[in-house]
Amino acid sequence: MNATHGGPDAQGVARWDFSTNSNACGPCPSALAALQAADAGRYPDPAYTALRASLATFHAVDVERVVLAGSASEFIARFTAWVAREGGQRVWLPAMAYGDYAHAARAWGLQRVPDAAQADLAWLCEPSSPLGEPEPFAHSVAAKSPRVVLDLAYEPLRLSGRCSLGLEARESVWQLWSPNKALGLTGVRGAYAIAPAPAVSDARALDGLAPSWVLGAHGVAMLSAWVSPDAQAWLAHSRSQLSDWRVSLRERLADCGWIGLPSDANYFCAAPPRPLDDAALRAVGIKLRDTTSMGLPGHWRLGVLPPAAQDALHAALRQQEVAA
């Protein structure tokens, strides 16, 4: 798989990494403490009894609806494989989306179709990536396709607006949660899905396709901490800080002639006034996310970072303007 992602690259970790959507206020202290206390010398409970119960309580659903995953990407691959095994042949994807949806579809021979009514599987993501906006076809897709997965990776980092699908509408779709971004712990893998209420047998089938110990001790610790009152309180406070930082980042980019697009999340896309020398930025420790591979050429996605990072970006962009 030749994937394009944000975050570290062959040059290592960028000092000012705007390419990732991880919570820049993180890592969450209580979640980090849980990771540090995790017992890596033993296997977790293979049934994940306590973890499943805590996630079910947090979402107020029956525990049978909880499907654990090694990561969101692992769930995307496994769910697509299950749909293909069940005879699915067609998939609907948003025009701009995370590349793993399409990669999994290609791996299992699913054909992309323009109408969700023709699809055996449909993917939604809100806030969307790369835009951080509502999916304009969310309601019609949820009504048309027999299997819809709503990727909620960025819902905990929503800074404005609300999800297109309300709580009642979400009950009819699969909900995919991967809280490592919200907790500022993207190096720790772990995710879970909430199956629609009538799909308990499908949830069991997906569990049956998972490898043994799909989550290690650290994934269990992170997901257990995620649902704690301390982590949720910290997350709520971080959203307030991120909202302020988002305003200042937009102002700095506008000062350099960039045109920013709307977003409800802790990231947004923007277009520079002239082609960007991203290699020069990377050389001074700054990394942005080119959104061409996500269906949005000519734009860059920027995660919201603290003022010191924004100052470094502003100075580097000004320097490129002078050089031009």
Rank of each mutant, 00 (worst) to 15 (best):
N23Q: 09
C25E: 14
Y101D: 09
H103R: 15
A77H: 14
E86S: 15
E74C: 13
V83N: 01
C28G: 03
D100V: 12
A33I: 02
G6N: 02
S73Q: 14
T49R: 12
S73K: 13
V67S: 03
V13Q: 14
C25P: 01
P27Q: 05
A40K: 09
A107R: 15
V63H: 02
S71G: 12
F18N: 04
E86G: 14
D62K: 07
D62S: 11
V91F: 05
A107Y: 09
L55E: 02
V83L: 05
P44F: 00
G41D: 05
D17I: 10
A102I: 11
R65A: 10
W16K: 01
D100K: 09
G6W: 03
A34M: 00
L68K: 08
S71A: 09
A24H: 07
H103C: 10
W92E: 03
A3P: 08
T57N: 03
Y43T: 01
A69L: 11
A84N: 10
D17P: 10
P29R: 03
H5D: 09
G12I: 05
R85F: 05
W16R: 03
Q89C: 10
V13Y: 12
Q89I: 07
R78I: 02
Q36Y: 06
Q11T: 07
R65M: 06
Q11G: 11
R78Y: 11
A77L: 14
D17F: 11
P46E: 01
Y101V: 10
M96P: 07
A31Y: 09
G88W: 11
D9L: 02
N23W: 07
A104R: 09
A97E: 14
M96T: 14
A34E: 00
R78L: 13
D39A: 01
A33E: 07
W82D: 14
A24L: 02
A60M: 13
G12N: 04
Y101I: 08
A84V: 10
W82G: 07
V63G: 00
Y43H: 06
T20V: 10
S71N: 11
A56K: 03
A14P: 08
A81Q: 15
R15M: 03
D100G: 01
R106M: 13
A31R: 05
A31W: 08
T49H: 06
A77I: 06
V83G: 01
L55I: 10
A56M: 08
L32S: 04
W16A: 08
G70I: 05
D100R: 14
Q11C: 05
A14W: 03
A105K: 11
Q11L: 13
G7W: 02
D9I: 02
S22V: 12
A97N: 15
R15T: 12
L32Q: 13
V61P: 08
A38W: 05
F79A: 12
T57P: 00
R52Y: 00
T80W: 06
R65G: 02
F79M: 10
S54W: 01
S73Y: 15
A34L: 02
A105T: 13
A24V: 03
A14D: 03
P27R: 11
R90C: 11
A24Q: 00
R106E: 15
S71T: 14
V67C: 13
A40M: 05
T4D: 12
S54C: 11
V66Y: 00
Q36P: 03
W92V: 07
T49V: 07
